[in-house]
Amino acid sequence: MSERVQITATNKSPLLLIVTWLLLVLAAFAYIVRSIVKLSRQAMRLEWDDYLLTGALVFCTAQSLATIIRAADGFGQPLALLSTAKVEASMQAALAASILYVLSLALSKISLLALLAKLSPNRRHRRVMHGIALFVAVFTSISVFVVSFSCSVPNTWDYTSGRCINRPLWWTFFDVYNIATESALIVIPIYIIGLVQWPLARKVVFSIPFVLRTCTIAACIADMLLWHRLSSSPDPFFAEWPVSVTTQTIQCSCLASTCILYLRNFLSSVETGFGLDGDLSASIPLELRTATVGRSGYNLSSEGLTGSASMPGQIKVTTRYEVREEVYTVLGGGHETETDQEMMDRRG
Score class of each variant (00 low, 15 high):
residue 151 C to F: 00
residue 191 Y to F: 09
residue 51 Y to C: 11
residue 230 L to W: 00
residue 348 G to Y: 10
residue 247 T to P: 07
residue 137 A to L: 15
residue 326 E to F: 08
residue 210 F to Y: 13
residue 134 L to Y: 05
residue 316 K to Y: 11
residue 74 G to W: 05
residue 191 Y to T: 03
residue 62 A to K: 12
residue 243 V to T: 01
residue 318 T to D: 13
residue 304 G to Y: 07
residue 149 F to K: 13
residue 84 T to P: 07
residue 69 I to A: 13
residue 224 M to I: 13
residue 319 T to D: 12
residue 303 E to Y: 13
residue 330 V to E: 06
residue 259 C to A: 12
residue 202 R to P: 06
residue 263 L to N: 07
residue 236 P to L: 02
residue 240 E to C: 05
residue 317 V to G: 02
residue 263 L to S: 07
residue 7 I to Y: 06
residue 248 Q to S: 14
residue 37 V to F: 03
residue 63 Q to V: 02
residue 200 L to F: 12
residue 222 A to R: 05
residue 99 I to H: 03
residue 296 S to A: 00
residue 334 G to W: 01
residue 73 D to Q: 15
residue 216 T to Q: 02
residue 212 L to D: 09
residue 276 L to W: 01
residue 113 L to T: 01
residue 281 S to Q: 01
residue 12 K to W: 06
residue 208 I to C: 05
residue 289 R to G: 04
residue 226 L to I: 07
residue 73 D to V: 06
residue 155 N to K: 14
residue 77 Q to D: 09
residue 17 L to A: 12
residue 18 I to V: 14
residue 221 I to G: 08
residue 306 T to N: 08
residue 299 N to I: 00
residue 27 A to R: 00
residue 276 L to E: 04
residue 282 A to E: 10
residue 88 E to M: 11
residue 291 A to C: 00
residue 80 A to H: 14
residue 17 L to E: 11
residue 40 S to K: 15
residue 286 L to M: 12
residue 40 S to H: 07
residue 86 K to H: 14
residue 133 A to P: 02
residue 228 H to Q: 03
residue 321 Y to E: 00
residue 8 T to S: 15
residue 244 S to V: 10
residue 176 V to D: 04
residue 292 T to K: 02
residue 255 L to R: 00
residue 163 R to M: 13
residue 226 L to R: 04
residue 226 L to W: 04
residue 161 S to H: 02
residue 104 S to T: 10
residue 330 V to Y: 02
residue 344 M to W: 11
residue 255 L to M: 07
residue 8 T to D: 04
residue 129 M to G: 07
residue 40 S to L: 08
residue 78 P to W: 03
residue 159 Y to Q: 10
residue 259 C to M: 10
residue 82 L to V: 05
residue 304 G to V: 14
residue 55 G to P: 04
residue 85 A to R: 13
residue 244 S to L: 07
residue 174 F to D: 03
residue 167 R to P: 10
residue 12 K to C: 02
residue 307 G to K: 09
residue 132 I to Y: 02
residue 251 Q to P: 08
residue 170 W to L: 14
residue 250 I to G: 08
residue 245 V to Y: 01
residue 46 L to D: 08
residue 128 V to F: 02
residue 343 M to Q: 13
residue 331 L to G: 11
residue 189 P to T: 06
residue 61 T to N: 10
residue 27 A to H: 02
residue 130 H to G: 08
residue 30 A to R: 10
residue 198 W to H: 09
residue 106 A to N: 09
residue 332 G to N: 10
residue 51 Y to V: 13
residue 163 R to T: 15
residue 118 K to D: 11
residue 80 A to C: 07
residue 43 A to Q: 11
residue 321 Y to P: 01
residue 315 I to H: 09
residue 78 P to H: 03
residue 207 S to F: 10
residue 108 S to D: 01
residue 299 N to K: 04
residue 295 R to T: 09
